[in-house]
Amino acid sequence: MSVLRNHVVLMFLYSVATALFFALLWRETRRDQIRLFVIVFVALFIGGVALGWAMFPFPIK
């Protein structure tokens, strides 16, 4: 279970599950589902990593 202590792994799992959930809930055709999945996944996972890097120059004092 040590892999589940890794923040990036947890972030990845959360992003995949959320993207899959909303793709299945909100879209009807396979093509639309894949499209929404990619958008939500990128927004959550890649966006989260990007936001983390963007905050790097502004440490908490």
């Binding site: 589940l4 947890l10 599950a17 299945l24």
Partner: peptide
């Protein structure tokens, strides 16, 4: 098909939450 997928997603998220 969708029901099984939803069950797996929701329960898995919940169980991961408990496990960590």
């Amino acid at each position: 098909g969708r029901a099984i997928a939803f069950f797996c997603i929701v329960v898995l998220l919940f169980l991961i939450g408990l496990a960590v």
